[in-house]
């Protein structure tokens, strides 16, 4: 067997990996190679899949790289995959969008924006690990603040939070934000005194 190329090695790593692989992780696994050449190889690999019109392609998602099937295969693959695919109700999507764009955000703020009780939806999103608790807001009552997770990026095929589609701007809308910017407080910080 001939000596495998860097591209081939990376392809193998990505094939076996069960989640997106960051460039950092790849570089760590390939100590004999420069970070720059690893990055180049990843890009070459991505272009290679693209040009071949392959059934899988290399996508940048949740800050890493992952081999995923191309969307055109969906009808064939969904026949093979057992169980119902992930379905999201309108309320779940609305809530996710609000959390994604406005994080860190409290439940009360979400409910103000949506105009309805959001407790049940939020619980489902927490259970599905799409939303997580970031900490507590430093206002009376210390309400919990929420944000999106890495799984959210993975499921929704997003490179990072900046990759979210831009919110449709509405002209002549007041520039005043409804809620002021809030500081994120870590859970279990230095504060003490309360029992």
């Amino acid at each position: 067997m001939h000596f495998p190329s860097l591209n081939a090695i990376i392809e193998g790593l990505l094939f076996v990996s069960d989640g997106p692989m960051t460039l950092d992780r790849l570089t760590e696994l390939l100590p004999d190679y420069e970070r720059a050449s690893v990055r180049l190889a990843v890009q070459e690999l991505r272009d290679d899949y693209e040009q071949r019109g392959a059934g899988v392609h290399l996508v940048e998602v949740a800050g890493g790289w992952q081999l995923r099937t191309v969307p055109e295969l969906m009808p064939y693959l969904s026949r093979m995959v057992k169980g119902r695919p992930a379905r999201f109700s309108q309320s779940a999507l609305e809530t996710l969008a609000i959390v994604a764009y406005r994080q860190p955000i409290t439940r009360q703020e979400i409910e103000y924006l949506r105009g309805v009780d959001t407790g049940a939806v939020l619980k489902t999103l927490l259970e599905k690990k799409l939303v997580k608790i970031l900490g507590k807001k430093d206002i009376p009552g210390r309400p919990i603040i929420y944000g999106t997770t890495r799984e959210f990026l993975e499921v929704f095929n997003l490179k990072d939070l900046k990759g979210l589609p831009t919110l449709r701007e509405i002209q002549s809308l007041d520039e005043v934000p409804i809620f002021e910017v809030q500081e994120e407080l870590p859970l279990g910080g230095e504060q003490r005194g309360e029992p």
Binding site: L67, T69, P71, L73, A86, Q90, E94, F156, N157, L164
Partner: peptide
């Protein structure tokens, strides 16, 4: 705005719905 953004999110190529990765544990 957020309702539209939610619809837009839902229309993306979702993992486990339009696109799949390895291993895809029981479709979920």
């Amino acid at each position: 705005r957020y309702r539209d953004a939610g619809l837009e999110l839902g229309a993306r190529e979702l993992l486990g719905r339009e696109v799949f990765a390895r291993p895809c544990a029981d479709g979920c």
